[in-house]
Design a protein around this nucleic acid. Structure first.
Length: 161
DNA sequence: CCTCACTTTCCTGCTT
DNA sequence: AAAGCAGGAAAGTGAG
C-alpha cells in the first residue's frame, strides 16, 4: 500500500491532474442513463475528474489527501481541500465543525471512486454516516444534509494539527 | 482460518 | 412525489 502512495510522488507535475483517464470514460457511460440533467452532469463530471485521487503529499497540508480509508476522513479531507471539493461540501460553522452536503450525488460518486464502487449512492453513504453517531465521530444535526463532527473526530480544526 | 471494525446493501416507515 | 433521515439486519471487506 505504501507503493501506491509513493508512486504518485514520482509522477511529473503534468501527470498530476489526469492520473486516471479511464474514469472520465467510465462516468461518461455510466451517468448517461442515470441523470436527466445534462448540465449538472457536466459540472459533476468535471468536478469528479478533477477531484479524483490526485495530488497528495505535495499539497499544502499533508493530511488533505482524499486518500483516507475511512469515510469520515474522506469527508473531512474533502472539506479541507477546496480545490477538489468543487462545492460538494461546505462549512456551515467552521468552528463547531458543522458542514453541509451540497451535492449529495456527487459526493456519493466521489466516495464510490475512492472505493472503486460504482454502485455507491448517497442513500447508502448516509447510512454509513449515521453509524458514526454511535461512535462520536459525528453528532446529529436535525437539518437535512447537515452533519457535525463529534468528540472523536480529529483533524478538522484547521488551526491545530 | 478467525475476529473485529467499518462499510455496503437492503428494507420499512417516517419526515420534509 | 421526490429526496432525506432512522436504524435494524445481514453480508462483504480488509487488517491483524
Amino acid at each position: 500500500m505504501l507503493d501506491s502512495v509513493s508512486h504518485n510522488a514520482y509522477l511529473p507535475n503534468t501527470m498530476i491532474c489526469e492520473p486516471l483517464m479511464s474514469w472520465s470514460e467510465f462516468f461518461g457511460t455510466m451517468e448517461e442513463n442515470y441523470n436527466p440533467f445534462d448540465h449538472q452532469i457536466d459540472n459533476d463530471k468535471a468536478c469528479l475528474r478533477k477531484g479524483s485521487i490526485k495530488s497528495q503529499e505535495f499539497q499544502s497540508h499533508n493530511r488533505t489527501s482524499l486518500q483516507s480509508s475511512h469515510l469520515w476522513e474522506f469527508v473531512r479531507d474533502l472539506l479541507l481541500s477546496p480545490e477538489e471539493n468543487c462545492g460538494i461540501l461546505e462549512w456551515e460553522d467552521r468552528d463547531q465543525g458543522i458542514f453541509r452536503v451540497i451535492k449529495s450525488d456527487a459526493l456519493a460518486k466521489m466516495w464510490g471512486q475512492r472505493k472503486k464502487n460504482d454502485r455507491m449512492t448517497y442513500e447508502k453513504l448516509s447510512r454509513a454516516l449515521r453509524y458514526y453517531y454511535k461512535t462520536g465521530i459525528l453528532e446529529r444535526v436535525d437539518r437535512r444534509l447537515v452533519y457535525k463532527f463529534g468528540k472523536n473526530a480529529h483533524g478538522w480544526q484547521d488551526s491545530k494539527l
